[in-house]
Nucleic acid binder design. Structure first.
Lengths: 150, 150
DNA sequence: CAAATTAGTTGACAGTGTCACCTAACGTGG
DNA sequence: CCACGTTAGGTGACACTGTCAACTAATTTG
């Protein structure tokens, strides 16, 4: 059936898809009902209070159109709030709400569980190596003008 | 700005997204105009002549509804053809056309280029290690009943 | 042989992502 | 100070990716 490791392209597609499905299952189990992009945006705000839409989009390497929509929904769900940016009238500073912080704790647990399932049997050293190699590749992609999506 | 390697979840999302964008750019540059899912399906048929829709869906770990649609478009584009399956009246055997094989060569070149951009500066050993670790994680995800999407 | 299962297909809809365009605020240079 | 260029946020439109449900016809099972 499968040929695991047959090449990098297939492997990456499978890994990403598999992880996303697993993460979604964990999120669903906790009845959190947030799509992945929402989770990532909320996490960015949680980790970086006073983010702006622009900074979130840049950090996530996503189009601002998409981010604007996601932020709107997080706002409507009461997970984040906006306050005027005193240094720039065009933008607003984003903060997690109490509710948002509580949800975030559960999302972090879901992420940990999904990662644990994915990495079962790997040593800490192997994991660190994988993460480091991944980061180098991400840096390559970010530095390459023809690949840079943003 | 970024915190590369801050955790596995973010890293994977970034890596997958970055690679996909890079691959799409390579495909676009060659004016092949095929979405990623179509590319993967065509490649599966190219590598495994006499595939059926079911076997493609299983190999790609995708829903048969999606595969049916993609196959239909590849058919319409003249990249694949269907022939009756002599051993099962419900299914058809899939083959690449001449055109499909020619396109596939260009797609393979695009994949190679994208992978080269992503892995610049990594040694062959590092690359092999990454692929091996990835495959082990894919196997974990596939084996886990709560993560298994198919 | 009837019932259960399976291969392929279609409908409906949600999530992800891109490009174009707009308004208002900010930054720059004369 | 002001005109002009740039930027932050937002919206429209549409393509791609993916899931679940339901259906028909063929195959398998007991």
């Amino acid at each position: 059936m499968d040929k695991p490791g047959s090449n990098l392209s297939d492997t990456l597609h499978r890994l990403a898809h598999g992880y996303k499905c697993c993460l979604r299952a964990e999120v669903s189990e906790r009845e959190l009902g947030l799509p992945i992009t929402h989770i990532r945006a909320l996490k960015g705000i949680y980790r970086n209070p006073e983010s702006t839409a622009f900074s979130i989009a840049r950090r996530m390497q996503r189009d601002k159109a998409q981010i604007t929509r996601v932020l709107k929904e997080l706002l409507n769900d009461g997970l984040i709030e906006k306050r005027p940016n005193p240094t720039d009238g065009r933008s607003q500073l984003l903060f997690p709400t109490e509710k948002g912080r509580a949800v975030m704790q559960q999302l972090l647990a879901a992420e940990r569980e999904a990662a644990a399932r994915m990495t079962r049997g790997l040593t800490q050293k192997e994991l660190q190596l994988f993460t480091e190699l991944s980061a180098r590749m991400v840096a390559n992609l970010n530095a390459d003008p023809e690949c840079n999506s943003n």
